[in-house]
Design a protein around this nucleic acid. Structure first.
Lengths: 318, 318
DNA sequence: TCGGTTATGCTCAGGATAAGTATAAGCTAG
DNA sequence: CTAGCTTATACTTATCCTGAGCATAACCGA
C-alpha cells in the first residue's frame, strides 16, 4: 500500500476522484426536529468539495453562514461514504461523499434561499416514539420484518435475522434503543422494505411508510440523527438548537424531539440544574398555559470551565 | 451548492482530487499498545484509495488481511482530513486522507512484510499515566504550557490559554481525562511544542519528548487513540485485541494499556462478570507467579444477544 | 514454614437514578 | 369568585451503581 502510493503519486492522477460535501443541518422548532432539504425535499444540501478553505469544517461553516446569514453553532464531521451501488446510479461510482452534521435555528434562515426545513420524522416515521409506537407502523413493520426473517434459507439464518430485527427494533419485549437509527435503516434496506432498496435492485417486498431521498442521502441523515441522539447525552449540544432564553419545559421538549421519546420531567430538571448548565434570566415566560415558568439561558461558561458531561436522558418508562 | 454541483459534474472533473487511505492498526502485546508503522516507524500505513471494493471498509479489510494473513477483527472509520498546510507539504494540498481504525493481534503478522509494530506511547509519552505522571514530563510540560499561555497578548487571552491547557492536561488539581488525546496533541501543536509545528512554520519553542511522524500522521494516530479509549467504555472491543483465552488480569492489563491508567481490580472483575462478557474455559493459566488464574474466553454470543454496553473503566484513584 | 504474589469472594458507604407525592401559581368557564 | 384545568417546582423514597477496602485462597521459592 505504501509502495503503491509512491508509485501512483509519481505517475500522477491514477486515482483521481471527485468529492462532495453533504450537510445534515438540524434545527428544532416548536418541539419538532427539522432538517434543511433541497430538490423538493428529496435531498440534503450538497455540493462539490472546495479546497479554498483551510479545512473541510471551516469550508462548510462559511458556506452555511453565507446561505443562512446566521453563524452555524456546532459542526462535526459525520462520515465519508463511498459505497458503490448505493448512490442510485452505479454509473459514476468514482465519487465520495463527505458528510457533516450542523446545528442551527430555523428562524434565522436568509431570504431568497431555495432550501426548506422538513420534519425529520417524515423520513423516519418509525423513529418517533414520543406518542408511543406509531399505530400505523406497529403491526405492519413487525410482520414485514418477520416475513423477511422467515424468507432466509436455513433455520439458523432465519433465527439470526429475527434476532437482529428484534434487537434493533425493540421487539419481543426488548428495550427500544433510540441510538440505533442507522442500524434500523440498514436493516430495512437489506430487507427491501424501503424505496431505496427497490431502486438499487434489492429484491423488494411491499414498502413501508417514510419518505425516500435521492442517492444515499437518507442513510446519511440516519447517521446524523444517530450521532445527535448519542451526543446530547454527553455533550450540551441541545443548547445550540435553543433560542437565547427558554423555559425548562421547552428545553425538555427539544431533547424529547431529538431522542424520539419522553423523559421524566422532574429528574430532567434535577439533572440540568445540578450540572449548572443553565442560569435564570430573571424573566418569566409570557403567554403560556398554566403556571408561568422561569426563563433560563445557557451558561456558556461551562464549556470553558470543564470537560462536561451533557444531559443523559432520564427516560420515563410509561 | 447543489446547483454548483450539477454544473461541475456536467463540465467534468473541475473538482478532481486524490484520496488516500491511512490506517491506525492497533494490537496489544504484553500489556503494551502497539501500532503498525512503516517508513522506519515514522509513518502510518497508507496508500491510494481504490474503488475496486464495494465500500471503503471492505477495501481496507481485505488489504490488511492480505498483508497480515489474519482477519481484521474490527474496523471503523476515523476521520477524513483535508487541512492545508498540515501535511508537511503545502505544495500538494488537493489530497484528502480517509483514516481508519483497525484492531488486530501482533503475533499473526505475515512473513516478508516491511511493517513494524511500535509502542504507541513512543509517540505520545504524556499519554501513559499507568506509572503515575511520567517524571521526565511532569515539570517540563507544565512549565512550557505556562510559558505559552503567558506569551499571549492580552490578559484574558492568557487566562483562556491556561484554562484550556489546565483542562486538557489535568493541571491545577483538575482530573486527567484520558479521552482528550487529540485535544492535547492539537494544543501542543498550537503551542509549538512538537516537531510537526516547527515543520509547519508555527513559531517554535523548545520541543518536548515524543517521536514525530510524517505529514499529519501523528494527528491521525491521536484521533485513533482517543476513539479507542472512548470505545472500550461502551463496546466490548478489547476482546478483538486479546488471544482466544486469557486471564482476567491480562484483560485488565490490556484495558489499562489502552486507557493509559490503572483500574480497580475487583471492581473491574465485577463489571466484566456481571455483564456476562466472558465465560470460563475450564483451563488454568500455566507458568504464572502467585495463585494460578482461571482462563476465560469472550462470549461472542453477547454481540448478537443485545446491544451491549462495554467496560466503563472502574478507575482507581490511588 | 514464612513471605511474596496473584486470585477471588464479600462488605459497606455514598451517590446517582427512577418514580412518585405534594404544593404553588397561573388561566378560564361557569 | 371559585372549581377545575394546566404547568412549575420542591421533596421524598426505594433501589441500583460505584468506589474502596478487607479477608481469604492458592501458588511459588527461599
Amino acid at each position: 500500500m505504501a509502495g503503491a502510493s509512491k508509485k501512483n503519486r509519481a505517475t500522477g492522477s491514477a486515482n483521481a476522484i471527485t468529492a462532495d460535501l453533504v450537510a445534515v443541518l438540524v434545527a428544532v422548532t416548536d418541539g419538532e426536529p427539522k432538517i434543511m432539504t433541497i430538490a423538493n425535499d428529496g435531498a440534503l444540501p450538497s455540493g462539490p468539495f472546495e479546497f479554498a478553505h483551510r479545512s473541510l469544517q471551516t469550508g462548510l461553516r462559511s458556506w452555511v453562514e453565507a446561505q443562512t446569514g446566521h453563524p452555524l453553532g456546532y459542526v462535526e464531521q459525520l462520515y465519508t461514504f463511498a459505497d458503490r451501488g448505493r448512490a442510485g446510479d452505479a454509473t459514476s461510482p468514482h465519487s465520495i461523499s463527505i458528510s457533516y452534521l450542523g446545528l442551527t435555528r430555523e428562524d434565522k434562515v436568509g431570504q431568497g434561499f431555495e432550501a426548506h426545513w422538513s420534519g425529520w420524522y417524515e423520513y423516519f416515521p418509525w423513529e418517533d416514539r414520543r406518542a408511543g409506537v406509531p399505530a400505523s407502523l406497529a403491526k405492519t413493520l413487525a410482520s414485514r420484518l418477520r416475513a423477511w426473517a422467515k424468507s432466509a434459507e436455513t433455520t439458523s439464518l432465519q433465527r439470526e435475522r429475527w434476532q437482529r430485527a428484534a434487537i434493533t427494533f425493540g421487539l419481543d419485549d426488548r428495550e427500544w434503543n433510540e441510538e440505533l437509527v442507522l442500524q434500523r435503516y440498514e436493516l430495512l434496506y437489506e430487507a427491501g422494505l424501503i424505496p431505496e432498496a427497490v431502486r438499487d435492485g434489492i429484491s423488494a417486498a411491499a414498502v413501508i411508510p417514510g419518505r425516500p431521498m435521492t442517492g444515499d442521502h437518507r442513510r446519511i441523515l440516519a447517521t446524523g440523527i444517530a450521532r445527535l441522539r448519542a451526543k446530547i447525552k454527553y455533550r450540551p449540544v441541545v443548547f445550540e438548537l435553543m433560542p437565547a432564553e427558554f423555559t425548562l419545559l421547552q428545553l425538555q421538549r427539544s431533547v424529547e424531539a431529538l431522542a424520539g421519546r419522553l423523559v421524566h420531567k422532574q429528574n430532567f430538571r434535577r439533572l440540568i440544574e445540578q450540572q449548572q448548565l443553565v442560569e435564570e434570566t430573571g424573566a418569566i415566560a409570557a403567554d403560556t398555559v398554566g403556571r408561568p415558568a422561569k426563563l433560563f439561558r445557557f451558561r456558556h461558561g461551562v464549556l470553558a470551565e470543564r470537560a462536561i458531561a451533557g444531559t443523559k436522558l432520564p427516560l420515563s418508562r410509561t
